[in-house]
Computed example of a mutant assay.
Amino acid sequence: MLDVRNVSASYGAIQALQNVSLQVPRGEIVALLGSNGAGKSTTLNAISHLIEPSAGEIRFDGELISRAPSDDIVRRGLVQVPEGREVFKDMSVRENLELGAFLRKSARKEIADDFERVYTMFPRLKERSEQRASTLSGGEQQMLAIGRALMARPRMILLDEPSMGLSPLLVEQIFEIIQRLNREQGLTILVVEQDVRLALRVSTYAYILENGEMNLHGASKDLLNDPAVRRAYLGV
């Protein structure tokens, strides 16, 4: 579904990505791993065209999107959940969700159905629908960020550090939700995650970035038992 080939990107004179390639098959969960500053978030931002790739090509469902504007990429069904949640804290939970459906605002009946779908998956959001997003806990804000993405009716989501700042119990809950979205709704997912063990447990395939270049990739179960991965990322 997603095919990234030889993508490079820079921030001014700083080379952030160098010839990065990865593929995400339809209906799979794929993990993108690496240390801080490895280029993981930059890769997602290049896919979403929040930054301009300097080289390479990106295809979504067979169509070239390397130069497509971000709103067009969302319309095609590829939606990013940003690092740090980035909810609109002075707006209510419901208003945040409405913004997720902004590009579909003419489809009122569908949007009403989507509210119910999101509220069914995240009952806490329904309970707090009129509260300001700033009053939510970190875990609830992450649920809101995912719910907002679902309001766009994506076929694939890019999740950037969903466990950031959350307790171990909440991290487990968020990743259970990610697996449900994949299993029950057929969503294709590319997840960037610092918790390497957890990411390898829920994904089928994984890529590891180092210093903006692809260092290693393979089936998640194989990487989980790879001695180099265990030494570098699992403390074994």
Rank of each mutant, 00 (worst) to 15 (best):
Q179T: 09
T120D: 15
Q131I: 00
V191G: 02
F175N: 01
E116C: 10
M164A: 13
A133M: 03
G147M: 08
R183L: 05
Y119P: 12
I157Y: 04
E172V: 09
G138I: 07
M121K: 13
L97F: 10
E176L: 11
L181D: 00
L144E: 03
Q142L: 06
S106R: 15
A107I: 01
F175M: 05
K126I: 02
R132C: 00
Q179P: 00
E184V: 04
I157F: 07
A112L: 13
I177A: 07
G186H: 07
K109S: 14
E184M: 05
M121W: 14
M143C: 13
L159I: 09
F175D: 01
F102I: 14
A101K: 04
L125P: 08
I111H: 07
I111S: 04
P154A: 12
L169P: 00
A152Y: 11
I177W: 02
E98Y: 05
G100A: 12
S129G: 00
T188G: 06
L144A: 07
R108A: 12
L150F: 08
E176C: 03
M156N: 04
E127H: 09
E127D: 15
I111A: 05
S106Q: 15
R117A: 13
A112P: 03
G139Y: 09
R94Y: 09
D160P: 07
P168G: 02
A145L: 10
I146T: 06
E95V: 05
A112Y: 09
V191L: 06
G147P: 11
A101L: 12
L158F: 11
R128D: 01
M143N: 08
E172L: 04
G165L: 04
Q185N: 12
R124S: 14
M143D: 07
I146E: 02
L103R: 06
R104D: 12
L144C: 11
A152W: 10
P162D: 00
Q185P: 00
I157M: 12
Q141L: 12
L97C: 06
T188L: 05
Q141H: 13
R148H: 11
A133S: 09
L190T: 02
E95W: 10
V171I: 15
R180V: 08
T135R: 06
S129D: 00
R153W: 10
L170C: 00
Q142D: 08
I146C: 07
Q185L: 15
L166D: 03
L166W: 06
T188Y: 06
L136K: 03
V191K: 01
L144H: 10
I189Y: 10
A133C: 04
S163F: 05
K109A: 14
L187E: 05
L99W: 12
E116W: 11
M151G: 07
R117Y: 14
I178Y: 11
E184P: 07
T188S: 13
P162H: 01
S167W: 06
I157L: 12
Q141P: 12
E110A: 15
F102C: 13
L181W: 05
S134T: 00
L99P: 06
L181S: 01
S137P: 10
A133Y: 01
I189V: 15
